[in-house]
Amino acid sequence: MNQQLDEHGRLRHLLTTEGLPRDLMTRILDTAESFSGVIGKSVKKVPLLRGRTIINLFFEPSTRTRTTFELAAQRLSADVLNIDVATSSASKGESLLDTLRNLEAMQCDAFVVRHGESGAAHFIARHVNPGVAVINAGDGRHAHPTQALLDVFTIRREKGAFEPLTVAIVGDILHSRVARSQIHALMALGAGEVRVIAPRTLLPSHIQRFGVRVYEDMDAGLDGVDVVIMLRLQRERMRGALLPSQGEFFRRYGLTEKRLERTKPDAIVMHPGPINRGVEIDSAVADGPRSVILQQVTNGIAVRMAVMSMVMGAGGETTAAAVQEEQLS
């Protein structure tokens, strides 16, 4: 889907990690790396997007994602407007297109969009004025590219190169936009092997076509992996005959210290959050030494700063250079 690249191959929108070229993805990660220095400083702001307006347009509730986008925008000195559509005009029957047109009339420069329907971010990107950027903050089951990018950023920081790594993604793959985006990102970055582990009811059809190995048995799937990514299991999955109970799911697919023994001794444990303790992950693991779950949250800010600066034309290596200058001055 090249809708997200301009004619020069630069990032115009960020809608999905599928089809995102490896060098571009690496550039996002490098840029994020340079921003992560800013975050640690006492003055946490750079003026890259001063005078620009970013609208966080959330049609689904979210705390973590919206907050980190908001922080990222503020640290780039942009003006941020949070619009929680779940409680505003959409519930009054306004169409997505009308909502968009009204917000555009307020002269914004970028939309960060979360929506319950797959393809919503593509739809918005197709309909915005030229020059307005769209960042997908999660659409239906389709994609959550910034989450996947912060995950590979975290993996790169912890592990270095991707080639030797075996990564296992565990749980509700069927409904997970995060898993889809992670798989595409890991594949593009050349990860040695990506596994998905789930009961058949939570595996989407033809997932092998993404290039992953499918495991229905968790112990076998965790054997010798470097990275374990646990997915959140929504409580409503117990309805609709996907699973018999949370207890049975945890017994077969929950990550415990005992199960973690199957992995490499230095394996890291990740989770996009929010975690369900005792449903997909045991507290001892979530809070344990292998867990990098909170680092993921921190890294989310730098990665989102990188994406925002790049899609808003302050982009790429120039951004990194500008930041370094900023830091020196």
Binding site: S118, G119, G140, R141, H142, R180, S205, H206
Partner: peptide, 15 residues
């Protein structure tokens, strides 16, 4: 249709 395209696009499929 439930298949690769549905999975890629995250659209609910019917078999």
């Amino acid at each position: 249709h439930e298949g690769e395209t549905a999975t890629r696009r995250g659209l609910p499929g019917q078999p």
